[in-house]
Write a protein that binds this DNA or RNA. Structure first.
Lengths: 342, 342
DNA sequence: CTGAAAGCGCTAACAG
DNA sequence: CTGTTAGCGCTTTCAG
């Protein structure tokens, strides 16, 4: 990997090392090291000389060497499906919160809901020997699961609770969330249901909500009258399009369940544009409880979840973790709660 | 940093190393190394033995050792102010796109619009010896700027163009974007302007748009009649609140310029709730050209920017970069373009 | 209080 | 084709 040319590295632009600092300060590497970290005892005079030297040449420590030597890093790997949905950004935000003040550092990887990419991302992260790993969901394919099981660090699977965890879990049951919403809507008198969703077979959590919803309807003798599905990413635009589609097919629906709030917002916009009265004529229900739901000029139902809290608790598990998995393995349920928006 | 107990590391749960693979395969470390990377010539038989051994013990390479040895990493540091605004998530998404297929890996850090945190984040990243750094904006304080200047890697400052770059830049002039919008709104006949904005003194780019807007008004003899400002983060909710506030103060306005689309959406919701006719009675203008703008039941003006493209071009500069800064230093202007939403 | 030696896991360079 | 040696930058022993 060295440049073919014989000089090791052009002397002038090499990043300075501890040795450079030590030389300039007129002490040994070790004294410099100790002075910079104030570890062990170093004479006051030397501390000052070393700090001055470091400052002067703009010394920046090398974490690669540090971590290799220490046989451990302060890295937390975080694997999420994507950032287009603000929900994951909020999880990251919670993680950042919890990390703030500690010396932990997070490394993010995005999988685009692609299992192969997820595998590669996790492999890549493991090769940096992180102190812990946070991955989204419980539905990794066997190959990926093996990798996670073999890793000798705490693994926290987040967002989902329906499945068999590798180690620790923080999230909620989406199946239950879907079922709860179905029951709440039934209780409020709705009967003619339609479903509007995006990416159901990549987004396994949305699929679980769908399944829970349908089951709970069935349990009370009801069914989904029709559905509008798309494999496009969840966007307001797609939500509006699909809503138009489903209401054209069956204008008589009195309730629409959406795969999430973004898609539901598209439904809201469609109804407003067509002067369809919400919730009198038709009720709309999303999922997540995003900020804008409360500001909408009309009210929709949603399941509120605490994404930041999920991030925080995941970090909590890792940093409190008595080491590798198994020991402190836990399950934290942060259930969604229904808001009918009345 | 070693555990106080005298065993180096409990033998049973140590991550396996190349040496373990080599031993199991009955070859030397080097042969194993070459076989795994298929570098150099290794006999077919040995390649198979080594791969089998690696597979069997679940060997995962150690990037710390690799990078230390190679004196370089495949890391790209990315420093952004936050993820609450979807705009930065989109930049990251563009970065992820551009990185996909290469062996580069991105590491994100969030600063929360806090200069001190930004400094720490950058320092931290530099200590991992990344191959390049992408930072948001041009307005770093002196201390941070020094750090960036001293780093012997390509630095790309993104989003903004108004200022003095350290190395390369990819973004747009927010001053011009604000001025363009002012002129467009004047051209369309608006005269009684109000401004609604969040976080102006942390979000320097929003502040630049504001400045450009006001200047361009002045150039044609007009002024901002009033403004509603807040230091809360930009949210729909805050936008709705501030819009209510400003229209109470001065119900006679015929145009509102918002610090961005999220805040503008709050304005939209307020107007819908109050049955204020948009754009007849009042015109609303945001910034960014977010997805939902096109789906809104009423039309607002916005400046469309290409965030993903910014991310992609930033990676382009770094990966095409002939090495450290200076050499391939560039400026890429990806201007916003006005959409009056008619 | 300070320094010299050894090693973290890996690869480039150089011999066989 | 294969193995040995040396070294990446740092820290932890262990002697002064």
């Amino acid at each position: 990997m060295k440049k073919p040319n014989s000089d090791p590295v052009p002397e002038i632009m090499r990043k300075s090392t501890l040795e450079d600092v030590a030389r300039l300060a007129g002490v040994s590497k070790m004294t410099a090291s100790r002075a910079l970290r104030n570890a062990g005892d170093v004479s006051r005079a030397n501390v000052i000389k070393v700090q001055a030297a470091a400052e002067q040449i703009g010394y920046v420590g090398n974490n690669l060497a540090l971590s290799l030597s220490a046989q451990s890093t302060n890295l937390i790997g975080v694997v999420i499906p994507g950032l287009s949905n603000i929900v994951f950004a909020e999880v990251l935000s919670g993680i950042a919160d919890a990390i703030d003040g500690t010396d932990l550092q997070s490394v993010f990887g995005v999988t685009d809901y692609d299992p192969e990419k997820e595998y590669q991302t996790i492999l890549n992260m493991l090769s940096w020997r992180p102190a812990g790993l946070i991955v989204t969901g419980l539905d990794q394919p066997e190959k990926t699961r093996k990798l996670l099981e073999a890793a000798d660090i705490p693994i926290v699977q987040i967002m989902d609770l329906d499945g068999d965890p590798v180690d620790a879990v923080v999230g909620l049951s989406h199946k239950k969330a879907g079922a709860d919403m179905a029951r709440a809507l039934l209780d409020s008198g709705r009967r003619r249901f339609g479903y509007v969703g995006c990416r159901l077979h990549r987004d396994t959590r949305a699929a679980k909500r769908y399944a829970g919803f349908v089951e709970a309807l069935a349990a009370q003798g009801h069914v989904l009258r029709c559905e509008a599905l798309s494999e496009a990413p969840s966007t307001v635009h797609e939500g509006r399009r699909l809503t138009a589609e489903i209401l054209e097919t069956d204008p008589d629906l009195d309730c629409l369940y959406f795969s999430n709030d973004d898609v539901a917002m598209g439904g809201v916009f469609h109804c407003m544009a067509r002067a369809i009265s919400v919730p009198d004529q038709i009720m709309l229900a999303g999922f997540n409880g995003l900020d804008f739901v409360d500001s909408l000029p009309i009210k929709i139902a949603t399941s509120r979840t605490d994404r930041r809290q999920i991030g925080r608790r995941a970090i909590g598990i890792i940093s409190s973790g008595k080491g590798p998995k198994g020991v402190g393995s836990r399950m934290i349920d942060l259930p969604a709660f229904i808001d009918l928006g009345q």
